[in-house]
Structures are given as structure tokens and as C-alpha cells.
Nucleic acid binder design. Structure first.
Lengths: 228, 228
DNA sequence: TGACATAGTGTCTATTATACACTATTATCC
DNA sequence: GGATAATAGTGTATAATAGACACTATGTCA
């Protein structure tokens, strides 16, 4: 135990709320804890911040170690510092929220985690620590961001139809939207590039689009406001 | 040095970006550091988080110790965790942003601070650590919040005129607003209670108002959206 | 009492949001 | 190969909201 300090220090962790959208549902990735405390319970992926990595680095590392996910959209959410949030000792956790193109991604359980599994946000099991509070905060943030920032595209495959985009908005926001008005609004942003491809499946094939992040960047710098 | 741990730990601090509005200007409260590092330079008020207090408690305590301020609007902003942000060792800082009814408040310098002083946001001196980054983040947040949350009232005295409110919005957002349209919009929210008092000073006395936070709470729960 | 300083007020127009229903294209099944 | 099922795609009329715009009102002070 070679690390000594003049005053007691809280330990620092990161925890990630990872959202995915699949089968018409918004889902969250949870891991089954392999170690005490709360061994066997479901929890958010996360772990201790090393002294030689930034918070963002720690979040990405833990995410990959515990779930196998890489290269996802990741953003700091809030820092939770209640005194008894961890039964072992004083632990402050910097929470992140992540968005995953679920259809494409492979997840796996690894290191310290017995299992990793996607849960619909309407069927979250009992969570370890204060992870339910963190999850709730993240869900509110996602709902808030969806309207005025182009984060929805992070949850869809790179090529998507307007119907898929609309279903995403309806599911996450819990509302129902008028098809014609939605399409009008989306198209008026001119941030979607129509591809020379159509979707497969039953019914009439649909035009596929991709989001144009560069154009969004340029417009943002000119004071443009995304709003759906 | 009695506190030893198995792994090295970052130290945890809080830093506060305190905004006030006075003489038609948006100002920030800075302290002159009395100790190394950066002794003699200006910095945000803040300090180490004790192991037996929450982050919010630490922010309020440091704010009072270093500036004498109590009972102000305080909200967590962002957590800064770059590796070399402090030259001494690895320090992670949870930043807060605070809004003060400046006209009323008394500030004083204290503990570890040689001086505390209000600076117009357009004339910020060179700041210690990464405090300029923190300040910039806070200013962006304030501008963003002003439009869709009733935070402006936290910067005004409890009794204020519509002109004062408008000037606040114009100054912080850096725009100029139409008087009649602004008043129409504000009044349509019906969150201001007219008082049986008028303002002093040159020109025609103005109706004084106060903000009704209870009504705002009630409306918020019913899905009301503040928007100015 | 006149000049100065600031408060307060309404209408018309343009823009944006909302409500609303049918036709089009593909695959499948008989 | 024609009917059916499934989903895509399209336009207009109305309501609501936002924006432009200029004069009168009320107090103080010289």
C-alpha cells in the first residue's frame, strides 16, 4: 500500500449509461456484477479512474473492457458525489452517457462482469449503488438533447429511412408525430443526404439517407439551431 | 501522512464560476491566490473536497470561506479531468456555476485568498490553472439556460422592473430586443407578480415585479416550457 | 413650466406549426 | 396474374406565434 496522502481522498470512478435502439425499443446496456459489493446484481458499466488517464479515457477504457464497445458517441453527464453511494468507502463517480448504433455493434461481457445485456428502458431491473438515479438522469438528458441536437443519428445505422428516424423520435420522446409534418421538418434542415439505395423488407422500399455531420458543423458555426 | 491506498488517487476539488449583474454588466467573481501555485494570480474560488462532504456542500463551503457568499443559486456545471491541469499533481475538479443577486450581496476576501473582486466578463484577467476554460464553459451554459429556464431572476434583486429584466437578457445574450415584444412574451408566461411599488430614479417610475417560483414549479410539472 | 429621462402600450404582417387522407410501390399468396 | 398486405410518400388550408414598428404617459429637476 505505497500511496499515502496527507488528507483522506475519495476514490474516483466513471459509470456509463449506454443507450441503443433496436426492435423499435430504446435499450440500455447493463452488466451483471462479478464482484462484491452487489455481486450478481445489474449495474452500469464503469470502474475506477486511473491516475494517468483523463475521465474520457477512463470511460472509453471501461466501456471496452466491460462490454467490448468501441468508437461510440460518449459525453459527460453529471458527477455523483453523495456520501454513502458506495457501501465500501467514499466514491465519487463521473457519469457518462453513450449512444450506440445497436444494429451493428457486437457486445460481449468481459473483465469483472459476469454478463452484459441490453434491457428495454421500460424494464430496468434492480440496479446496484445509485445507478438508477444515474440512469434516470441520463434518460432525461437524452430526451432533452434529442430535440435540439442531432444525437438521434447516433442511435441509427449510418443508412436509415425517414420512418426509422420518426419511430426513434416517437419512442424516445414517448409521443406520436405526424408523418408529413415530421418529414417536412426534417427535410427543411437539409442535413440528410439521400442515397442511391432503398430499404429492404415488406411493403414499399424506402429511400435511404445518411446524416451529414460536416454540414451540421458548418451550420452550427453560423448560428444555426437544430430543432425537431 | 496517515492515509494510504492500494492505488494512487487523484485529488478532488470544486471550483465555482460566480456570475453577478451590476451596473448594466455581467460580472464574475475572482479571487487573488494567496498560496502557490499561481500565487498572486486570479482564479476561480474553490478548493479541496473533504471526504465527509458532498460535492454541493464542498462548493458552498468554499464559496463562503473564500468570498463570504451564502444562499446563492448553485448548480453543477462540468467535471474537468485533464492530466496536467494542475502542476502539482493529478487533480480533478468538479466545476459549479453560481448566480448572485449582486446588488444585495456583500463579498469579502478570506482564507487563502488575498482579495476577491468582480470582473466584467469582457475584461477577465489571466487566470490560474485551466480556469479560463471553466469560465468559458460556464458562460456558454448561462447563455443557453437563460432562454429556457428562469435563471435570469437569480441575477436580479427580488423586486425588479421589466426594463431591468430586458437589459439583463440583452447584456448576457449580446443581442438587442424589442421592448414591446419582450414585455408581451414575459407577461404571457404569467410568472411575474406585479407589486404595489414603483422604482425610483430618473424618468417615469416603473412597475416593480417579483418572480413567482412556486407557480413556475407547478407549471413545470404540467409540462410547461419557459422560453424567452 | 418646460426639458429630460424612462415607462408603457397595440396592430398589422410574416413565419411557423398543425391538422388532415389519399396514392404509390413492392412482395406475397392464392 | 390479380388481389391483398405492408409500408412509403406527398400537399394544402388554417391556426398560432413571432416580428416589425412609433407614439403617449409619468415622474424629476432646473
Amino acid at each position: 500500500m505505497p500511496y499515502t496522502y496527507q488528507y483522506p481522498r475519495a476514490a474516483l470512478t466513471v459509470d456509463c449509461v449506454v443507450f441503443g435502439f433496436d426492435e423499435g425499443e430504446l435499450k440500455v446496456l447493463l452488466i451483471e456484477r462479478g464482484l462484491t459489493p452487489f455481486k450478481g446484481q445489474w449495474a452500469l458499466p464503469g470502474g475506477f479512474v486511473r491516475v494517468d488517464e483523463t475521465l474520457d479515457e477512463a470511460a472509453r477504457r471501461e466501456l471496452e473492457e466491460e462490454t467490448g464497445l468501441r468508437g461510440v458517441f460518449l459525453e459527460q453527464l453529471y458527477t455523483f458525489g453523495e456520501l454513502k453511494r458506495d457501501p465500501r468507502e467514499r466514491i465519487v463517480s463521473v457519469a457518462y452517457f453513450a449512444l450506440v448504433k445497436l444494429a451493428l455493434s457486437q457486445t460481449r461481457a468481459a473483465t469483472d462482469a459476469a454478463d452484459a445485456r441490453w434491457f428495454p428502458v421500460s424494464k430496468i431491473p434492480k440496479l446496484a449503488f445509485d445507478h438508477l438515479t444515474i440512469f434516470t438522469t441520463a434518460l432525461e438528458r437524452l430526451r432533452g438533447k434529442l430535440r435540439y441536437q442531432p444525437v438521434g443519428f447516433e442511435l441509427l445505422a449510418p443508412k436509415f429511412t425517414l420512418s426509422q428516424l420518426q419511430h426513434l423520435y416517437e419512442t424516445v420522446l414517448g409521443t406520436s408525430l405526424d408523418k408529413r409534418n415530421f418529414r417536412k421538418k426534417v427535410q427543411s434542415l437539409s442535413l440528410l443526404i439521400p442515397l442511391n439505395e432503398t430499404s429492404e423488407g415488406p411493403g414499399r422500399p424506402a429511400q435511404l439517407f445518411r446524416f451529414d455531420p460536416d454540414k451540421y458543423e458548418r451550420l452550427t458555426k453560423k448560428g444555426f439551431n437544430f430543432d425537431l
